[in-house]
Write a protein that binds this DNA or RNA. Structure first.
Lengths: 107, 107
DNA sequence: GCATATATCTCACATTGTGGTACTAATATA
DNA sequence: TATATTAGTACCACAATGTGAGATATATGC
């Protein structure tokens, strides 16, 4: 369709917003798992991030090594303008379909 | 993943709730187009309804012919218990990821 | 019967979602 | 130096969802 996000894409972009400067694969996954109870495979996260980067929805930057017992460098992600727009459109669409419905149906 | 709905599936189930007794392919499509501005091909609607019926999310019943200049019988759909549950889970997941974020990011 | 209106069905292809496995790059310890 | 350990990312095949074009069906009006 262009312009509208899939369900998992939404969760990832929302995680970026929540995490701010600290958004990278592992923290994104943890944020979604903690807040939604859904269990998320780390592979899906990277795949989806990579696809959204190609579409211009997110941008990434490799971080510096941190002194916490080694490990590969983090790849930090942040929301790009196109991603913010797509997110807004998508949230608005669902919200407009929800408006006026009885709360017990929609909570 | 099971238990969580795709984006378009959500819109269709919400349309069922909005339309009540009058939910059938054409009216579902119209409701989504009018409220979201998104344009929806009628084929997607039927395909998605049929898949959700197989999963037990919706049920259908063939209507009687109506006297409005002919036409094929309508197939009315309504939300089943499993669909209501999946819808709630999905909406809740997005809502929990949205909570506390600045409104301008999330509206 | 034939025309026309309303509606559904089918199907191939595109996009998104998923999770297992492999790989890479850092520090620690010796 | 090298080996172990930890943290993190990349890859990839397959499944589920999304999409749209075109075909088909069933009603009424004449």
């Amino acid at each position: 369709m262009g312009q509208f996000l899939g369900e998992f894409e939404q969760l990832i972009l929302l995680a970026l917003l929540r995490l701010g400067e600290d958004a990278y694969g592992v923290s994104i996954r943890a944020e979604i798992e903690q807040r939604t109870g859904r269990d998320v495979s780390i592979g899906s996260v990277y795949t989806t991030l990579e696809r959204m980067e190609r579409k211009g929805y997110v941008r990434s930057a490799i971080g510096q090594p941190t002194p916490e017992r080694g490990g590969r460098r983090k790849k930090y992600y942040h929301l790009a303008a196109g991603g913010q727009a797509a997110l807004s459109h998508t949230l608005r669409a669902v919200r407009s379909m929800t408006e006026g419905l009885a709360p017990e149906l929609v909570e």
